[in-house]
Write a protein that binds this DNA or RNA. Structure first.
Lengths: 339, 339
DNA sequence: ATAAAATGCGACAATTAGTGTCGCATTATG
DNA sequence: CATAATGCGACACTAATTGTCGCATTTTAT
């Protein structure tokens, strides 16, 4: 590390070492971390930097209730370098709208200051010409938005840190079948966010098989003293592909052939199902013939079913059979409700 | 504005005024902007700040090909204050995976430095304990991922800036029906990202009706001298609700009653359809009775159809009829393919 | 084409800001 | 209760920052 005797850069480093609110860092620790990075300065200087300089210009808060004072940023503060430009701010706003339906609220909250920053920038624009951007942009999510399962901030933080730090955790879990709490020691191996539910993949206690734990059913979590045990040979993509999440997916893509209605053809010409997709006009109708190589997964089948009568699947035969069977069942139920 | 004679803060302000690569800012402009913010300094000082100080420690690049020199940040540079913590970094990684299927690549690129930052942080963790985080987190998107329509960076930037600045633009547009280029003057009124296609809502030339323009079919765009014309009384939510994007949606939510299979019940207990949803056991079967107030939109209907035989809609009657009709059509086509 | 204005930059001196040290008060720690 | 840490005001010393001037070069306007 270069011999940096540069004050500005030291300030910047200092600001990067101080965490946002739930976190805090003590002055001596800061001094040490600065030293690690090549800034060997007196404690007195550090104190001056924090109290007289940085906290004047930044929302830095000092917890002086006990003696090594601890510093942290205001919960809401966020600053980008370089500053956000208008297109990026707009992107963030759209991203937020989409993500709201995909990730649990606490997870989104992690990025809240960024999103607030973006909205703030657009608001400032509005001051000049009352552009009221909020009325001008919308994201319409793909598919039915199910409500993300709520989840506590502490759970997310502890679990995600343990996963990456390769540490075992002790959890109280509300198991699905039995409606009662169980305590386990988990060895986290992976994390999967599916739709809006987040699952932790881990081995339990002394067992070696991977099990799924829905994060929102973790009632309580804390670090464990037990040494973390790696599951050798575990491959997350493999695990998912083998159908662990209802996404039974063969490695082989299938060749889809279907007749589709004009509206559907229009949709697919805009957003193709796959990179290689062909649409050709059918004789004697305004329908089109669709051919594409697509993954053989449940998602695709759901999508095809959702299109109802707009799609007439010709191949693969298994899909046609499945769709036909579902339709037959529905027809058998009759046109009027049961009662 | 306070009389800031503070060098550190001036440096930071300076850094915030300098845009990332595609952008650039000339020295005299910087001087002016600094003056606006209360930093009245000599041009010479500014030159020194940039060349001798900031560009030593930051990836600042100077375009000295023409005489008011222009400064900009390296395309890849990004710095968060306060620095990212592990849970936030993980959130960003998940967010990126989801957004890849929802927004055009160029739009995601706007946030690329942030995502890179997050991945970098996690990579650094890995150095210590080879945690190989990349193998540990996955996001499985909800619904069939259609491929986002590609779109040029310049288009996104120009259009989004014009929308918010309330300025007219001149576009060359590849209209859908006629396969030829047309030139229009557009007065942007709104932006809608739907699935993975982004639409600009604007009035054309001297007309007053709103039309939709798919951003990826805008071949070329530039600012226009024509004064921007506001469409009075235009309400984006209203426009969408009236079915402009195939999402015919009455303001009134409907009361859904349906019998659902055990698997579906399980899914809905995790991620409810709406905040007020009840699931009750049905007599003489393991199926359950679902009741929920949900929006009356196409998305929901698609979702219900996608569930196929797993859902037996009882009410509203219109949905039951629609699902029945679609199923009848499919059954009428027979079990074997046409050709 | 040519003059006038703008911009960049090296040098220098005046000023300002940053730094370590010391002493004392206050607060944890064992 | 003693000892070690920590915070902070004061002060002197050192280093950095700043405006000014002069000159070279480029841009712009005439």
């Amino acid at each position: 590390m270069s011999e940096l005797r540069d004050t500005l850069f030291r300030y910047l480093t200092l600001l990067q070492l101080i965490p946002r609110y739930p976190g805090r860092i003590a002055t001596p620790v800061l001094k040490e971390k600065l030293a690690e990075r090549g800034f060997r300065i007196d404690t007195r200087s550090l104190q001056r930097d924090l109290r007289d300089r940085l906290s004047v210009h930044f929302p830095l808060i000092c917890d002086d209730s006990s003696r090594p004072y601890r510093w942290y940023f205001d919960r809401d503060f966020h600053c980008n370098l370089p500053a956000l430009d208008v297109p990026s701010a707009l992107t963030l706003v759209l991203a937020e709208e989409y993500l709201k339906g995909l990730l649990p609220p606490v997870v989104i909250d992690q990025l809240a200051p960024q999103f607030r920053d973006a909205r703030g920038l657009l608001d400032d624009l509005a001051q000049n010409g009352l552009s009221r951007w909020a009325r001008k942009v919308r994201a319409i999510p793909n598919g039915k938005a199910l409500l993300p399962a709520p989840l506590s901030e502490a759970t997310w933080q502890t679990v995600s840190e343990a996963l990456l730090a390769q540490e075992a955790i002790r959890v109280t879990y509300l198991s699905r079948s039995a409606e009662k709490h169980r305590r386990y020691t988990l060895h986290p191996q992976g994390l999967v966010s599916r739709h809006s539910v987040t699952y932790l993949l881990a081995t339990v206690n002394d067992y070696n098989d991977i099990r799924q734990f829905a994060m929102h059913r973790i009632v309580d979590v804390e670090g464990s003293d037990a040494p973390w045990r790696e599951t050798v040979g575990f491959d997350l993509d493999d695990y998912i592909a083998r159908g662990a999440f209802g996404y039974l997916q063969s490695r082989e893509p299938v060749h889809l052939v279907a007749n589709i209605s004009p509206q559907t053809a229009w949709l697919l010409s805009e957003t193709p199902l796959s990179r290689r997709q062909t649409l050709t006009a059918l004789p004697d109708s305004d329908w089109q013939r669709l051919e594409a190589d697509i993954p053989d997964d449940q998602q695709t089948l759901w999508w095809l079913m959702g299109m109802g009568a707009n799609v007439d699947v010709q191949a693969p035969a298994s899909w046609r059979r499945e769709i036909y069977a579902a339709a037959s069942t529905i027809v058998a139920r009759g046109q009027a409700p049961d009662g």
